[in-house]
């Protein structure tokens, strides 16, 4: 994973990792919220309150990233996670390629 941690910015790195995870969780929350809204089971007021809460969550995350100057680190962590997940999904879809690669590694 493209995480660049050294003694100077260890705090930087840990914070970056933490915020990346917070973003991922926030995404999951938004996804759930969206599904609730679409299901039509919420009242208008509830939809409004949900939306506002998410807006504030987004703002808070952005503010922290800006203050700590970790926007780059967070992006790097998320890109790394993306490529790992891509790989796994790719191998699930193409079990043959998985087998080939496993063989290669054993050799």
């Amino acid at each position: 994973m493209p995480l660049d941690i050294n003694e100077d910015n260890l705090k930087h790195g840990v914070l970056g990792l933490v915020m990346a995870l917070v973003e991922v969780i926030a995404d999951a929350l938004k996804h759930q919220a969206y599904r609730r809204v679409e299901s039509g089971r919420l009242t208008d007021l509830e939809v409004e309150r949900l939306g506002e809460a998410l807006i504030e969550l987004d703002a808070a995350i952005e503010e922290i990233k800006e203050q700590q100057g970790i926007a780059e680190s967070v992006k790097a962590v998320r890109d790394g996670l993306d490529s790992i997940v891509n790989d796994v999904v790719d191998r699930l879809i193409n079990p043959d390629r998985w087998e080939e690669e496993a063989k290669e590694q054993r050799i």
Partner: peptide, 15 residues
């Protein structure tokens, strides 16, 4: 729409 609902709508739009 008001803020919150607009936000949710935007999600729908994006999708």
């Amino acid at each position: 729409k008001p803020r919150g609902t607009a936000y949710m709508n935007k999600q729908k739009l994006d999708k």
